[in-house]
């Protein structure tokens, strides 16, 4: 049972260097811009490029004092579906809780493969990202789906934070393409 019912808790699963931390930070800063309280922190394991990593986000209307790692999430986001082969990504995800996974598989296929009875939301984030950005950038694209599924933060806040963090780094054109990709993921069924 969750210790903190009033705190919305998210785990991002990615591989070192894949941008799970950036995705988590965008969600957190978007929530801050909406006047909410947040925590965003990596699971402090040995981080190596390519190794599975976990990043945690908490969002609440009240001050967050708890500093445990997130163990009982409300939603899990998986940026690379091969992680599910070695990590149990659905741990403590109940029937009414959500798994968002970067995959071409169908809902049924995901549920069967992971033996998961909750709400599964596969999204072809690599495909959308290749089509619009021309590079595999699943971490930001999947945020569109995250917003659609959870409504934990608004789409506009997420886009604004993306721009704030990335405009200076990747330039106007690439930023706009990323924003389009986020929108496309938000619009997927």
């Amino acid at each position: 049972m969750k210790y903190h019912k009033e705190i919305f808790e998210i785990i991002f699963h990615g591989r070192g260097g894949q941008g799970a931390k950036a995705a988590a930070e965008i969600v957190a800063q978007a929530a801050v811009s909406e006047g909410k309280f947040v925590q965003a922190f990596p699971n402090f394991g040995p981080e190596r490029s390519g190794a599975p990593t976990k990043t945690f986000v908490r969002i609440s209307d009240k001050e967050i004092r708890n500093h445990e790692p997130v163990v009982d999430p409300d939603v899990v986001v998986v940026l690379d579906e091969t992680i599910a082969d070695s990590v149990d990504v659905t741990t403590n995800l109940d029937k009414n809780e959500a798994l968002i996974i970067n995959s071409k598989k169908s809902v049924q296929e995901i549920k069967e493969k992971l033996n998961f009875e909750g709400r599964a939301y596969p999204i072809d984030a690599n495909g959308i990202s290749m089509e619009i950005i021309g590079q595999p950038r699943p971490n930001t694209v999947i945020l569109g789906k995250f917003v659609q599924v959870t409504e934990a933060v608004g789409l506009e806040s997420v886009k604004k934070e993306f721009e704030k963090i990335f405009l200076g780094k990747i330039g106007k054109e690439a930023t706009e393409k990323n924003l389009q990709a986020i929108e496309k993921a938000y619009d997927t069924i």
């Binding site: 309280f37 947040v38 965003a40 500093h67």
Partner: peptide, 10 residues
């Protein structure tokens, strides 16, 4: 270390 130094908080 880490739980404060590397955690984003308000």
């Amino acid at each position: 270390g880490f739980s404060t130094s590397h955690s984003v908080e308000n």
